[in-house]
């Protein structure tokens, strides 16, 4: 792989009807790099990662994965998985009526040649993920428990455990700590550190600037669909970063005052 970036976006834009959520985004995610993606609600962060992970198609621009040009007519979540990209989405991507063992493998079940699912094998691996990766202990939760009976934190754990199991080169985490207790947040941060140690990459979307600044190699700031900052995390101190974000806000308030 060498120095080839895992993902490269060129002038990517996305509009949902009249709503423009991304405009002219050019950026790269390098190998073994933890990239923090920052921005207000509605800045376009989730839209950006949905394009990278095959959920949405951009309106304009090009995407390259490991230098290979992506043809969006046959790019999909499945294809992204094949290209070793995993995602933990912001909104739950779990079927709440379905048992854990299905949720771990949905979209890519372990099957025989006829497409029949190897249930026993999936349950065995699910159990292993629960014990070793997520650290679920007792509490009446097993692989047959429907996800709807889990707490928000436990569900997030399932989604992260799923991403961890399918060892990928790029793991995308969209606000993974929102529903979590403090001790669980620490687990997520450790997970991100382990991604770095294992030589893989991560896009980490997070509102807690402190966490982002601490674990990330590079920072990207989106503001109302545009890229306004892309720099090494070391190049900016925590205070400089918060000042930069505060100035962005004040800029907006100034604009609205002028407008009104």
């Amino acid at each position: 792989m060498g120095d080839q970036p895992i993902v490269r976006l060129e002038n990517v834009g996305k509009a949902y009807g009249p709503v423009v959520s991304l405009q002219d985004i050019t950026l790269e995610i390098g190998s073994n790099e933890i990239v923090g993606l920052i921005g207000d609600n509605g800045a376009g962060k989730s839209t950006l990662i949905k394009i990278v992970t095959g959920v949405e198609t951009p309106t304009t621009g090009e995407v390259y994965i490991r230098g290979e040009h992506i043809n969006f007519s046959n790019y999909s979540v499945q294809r992204a998985h094949e290209l070793r990209i995993e995602t933990v989405h912001q909104t739950s991507s779990l079927g709440t009526k379905q048992p854990l063992w299905r949720n771990f493998f949905v979209g890519r079940p372990i099957t025989n040649a006829l497409g029949f699912i190897k249930v026993r094998e999936q349950k065995r691996i699910s159990e292993q993920i629960m014990r070793e990766t997520i650290g679920f202990r007792g509490a009446g939760i097993d692989v047959d428990t429907p996800v709807g009976r889990l707490s928000g934190g436990e569900r997030q754990g399932v989604a992260i455990g799923r991403a961890m199991h399918f060892e990928s080169d790029l793991i995308v985490l969209d606000e993974p700590t929102v529903a979590l207790a403090l001790s669980e947040v620490e687990k997520v941060l450790n997970f991100i550190r382990s991604i770095k140690e294992n030589g893989r990459s991560c896009i980490y979307i997070e509102h807690n600037i402190h966490h982002v600044h601490e674990v990330c190699d590079r920072l990207i700031v989106l503001d109302r669909g545009r890229l306004v900052l892309d720099c090494e995390a070391k190049a900016m101190s925590y205070t400089e970063l918060t000042d930069f974000l505060r100035n962005l806000h004040q800029g907006h308030e100034g604009e609205t005052k002028v407008a009104s």
Binding site: V55, V77, H81, S93, F116
Partner: peptide
């Protein structure tokens, strides 16, 4: 209960948006 087609149907009926995000057509 045992085929990937059935599993896809279960997730589509459970939550269409989730089905889309996990890559079910």
């Amino acid at each position: 209960n045992r085929h990937r087609f059935g599993e896809n149907l279960l997730f589509i009926g459970d939550n269409l948006e989730v089905a889309r995000m996990v890559g079910i057509d």
